[in-house]
Each structure stands twice: as C-alpha cells, then as structure tokens.
Write a protein that binds this DNA or RNA. Structure first.
Length: 287
DNA sequence: CTAGGTGCCTGATTGC
DNA sequence: TGCAATCAGGCACCTA
C-alpha cells in the first residue's frame, strides 16, 4: 500500500514527466466507485471543469497526499503561486499511470487526464479507497496532516517532544497522520524493528536515547525504501508512474515475515493484532 | 485525551 | 470443481 516512500517516488516521476504540461481534458469514468473517490465534489463537472486547460506547474507531497499545482494561462497574469491544487490520495490500491492514449483502459480506471502528445495520466484504483479533489493551493483539507519526517520539518527534538506528550502505543503514534506524516503499517513495523522497540510500548516510557533511536530509524527506513522505489508486497499493489514495481519488499525485516526467522537473532517473527491491524515484530530484538 | 469498534472495497486465498 | 467465507489495509466517523 502506498505510504510516504511510494508517494515520494511517484512525486519525483511526475515532476519529471508531467510538470509543464497542460491538461487538455479531464474525464471521470462514471461508476459508483469513481463517484465515491471524487465524493468531495457533488458532480463530475466540478472536477472536470476546473482541470480542463490547466497547466501543471509543480507536484508537492504532504504525508501520503500528492498535490498538483495548477495554473491557468489566462487568469491572474503576474500573480505568484498556483491558482488551484489537485489533491490525490491513493488509499490502499490507487495507481497513477502515464499511459499512451491508444492503450486500452485497465479495469478500475476512474479518471483520465489527457496531457496531449498522445499520452494520458490515469487514476486506477481497484479497492477505491482513494480520494481525489480540487481545492485552493493551500489545501485546508490537509491541515490535520503532521510534520514530514524527511524534509526537515520533523526534527529529532520536535519528535521527542511530541512522543513524550502522548500516552499511547508507539504503533498507534507512528500511524497517526497528525503526529508524523506518511507512515503506515509497513514502515511503522520496519522503523520499530530498526529502533529495537516493541510496537506496544507506551510513548511516554521511552528514554531520550530510545526516542532519538526511533527518530533515526524512521528516517533511515523511509530513505532506504525510496532508494528501492517503494514496497510492492504480495497484497500491496503499488506501481510507479510506468506501472513498475518497487524493490523494497526484498529488504523488509518484519512486515509479513511472521513465522520466519529474525535476520538479526534468529527468533521467529511474531504477528499481533491490535484494533483491526497487525503489527509484525521480533520478540527478542524489540523491547 | 485515548481506546476501540465499524464500514467502505476487490482480489487472492482458504475452506468445505 | 465451485462457490462462499475470510482477509488485507487507510481513513472517517462513532461511542465509551
């Protein structure tokens, strides 16, 4: 499932391939799932209208959200900054694919953006947990998203302070988008393993050294995953802009390795349920 | 403030 | 062989 590294890989691909291009046309494929994905708009036209004729001037990321900055050639000449933003959240199974206009539409294609020059940007999402909408460039809908662990916003000091102020499990803290932006089930498990911390430890029981260890582990795990172009695990259908898989699944230490030996100490990796979600961890390495 | 539950959805897998 | 049940997960929303 797309978390920060997967969304960042996609952002970089999009920056290279679609920034500077103009959306010649936007079309919602009208199905119940498609309408649910664009549910912030009452009608397809509210999305198709504003997007048509817009020039893509930049791609930003906030946590797991992608923001396409859009400019309109005719409007606000000389005004700095974009006029509008297109927000995309991939949910569980969303894919943004740059495909030839002549290529047949895949099943579960919900939106098609015509980029001219014989190519299209397509939003495909079998489980349809994704969300897509247009808003103002400051995107007030994303105000709840917390600090980014990689771009300098989340310093070790800020992280430790936030951690100490909460009485909840580490797993819950890491997954909560208000505190650290962009971490989901895969990378919370991997970061906790790397920091040698048990997922059910309480935030306020960590020593300063342990908090720093967790901070470093988060950054190292996310950075490595970006280098490997993301995780495309068995049930994680992540694909990049060209439909290619990421290679980070080969580097996972605990996620979906339950029953297998810990590569560090040899003990069997455990899986434990916590409020409808699973945590994977080594019972010896993680305390 | 936090914990924990539900619903949304499809495809792969498991069970009978 | 075939069909039904189960599970995976992020997030919004709800109650205690």
């Amino acid at each position: 499932m797309p978390e920060l590294p997967e969304v960042e890989v996609l952002r970089r691909d999009l920056e290279r391939e679609v920034v500077g291009r103009t959306i010649a046309g936007a079309k919602v494929q009208v199905t119940p799932n498609s309408l649910r994905i664009i549910r912030r708009h009452a009608a397809c036209g509210e999305l198709e209208g504003p997007l048509t004729g817009a020039r893509i001037t930049g791609i930003r990321r906030r946590g797991k959200y992608l923001l396409f900055d859009l400019d309109f050639p005719g409007s606000g000449v000389g005004e700095p900054g974009p006029d509008l933003a297109l927000i995309v959240h991939l949910g569980m199974s969303g894919q943004l694919l740059h495909e030839a206009t002549l290529a047949p539409l895949r099943p579960h294609t919900h939106l098609v953006f015509d980029l001219g020059g014989g190519s299209q940007l397509r939003y495909v999402d079998p489980r349809a947990f994704g969300v897509l909408f247009v808003t103002t460039p400051d995107a007030p809908e994303l105000a709840h998203i917390g600090l980014d662990p990689l771009n300098g916003e989340l310093t070790a000091k800020r992280f430790s302070a936030r951690l100490a102020g909460h009485k909840m499990k580490l797993k819950a803290f890491l997954m909560d988008q208000r505190f650290v932006a962009g971490i989901g089930n895969i990378y919370s498990d991997e970061a906790l393993f790397r920091a040698r911390l048990h997922p059910f430890r309480m935030c306020d029981t960590l020593s300063p050294a342990e908090a720093r260890r967790l901070y470093r582990a988060i950054r190292e795990v996310l950075t490595a995953a970006i280098v490997h172009r993301g995780t495309s695990a068995e049930d994680a259908q992540y694909r990049d802009l060209h439909g290619a898989t990421g290679q980070h699944s080969y580097f996972l230490e605990v996620y979906q390795r339950q029953g297998q030996a810990c590569r560090h100490c040899g003990r069997t990796i455990q899986r434990a349920r916590w409020t409808n979600r699973h945590s994977h961890f080594c019972p010896r390495c993680q305390v």
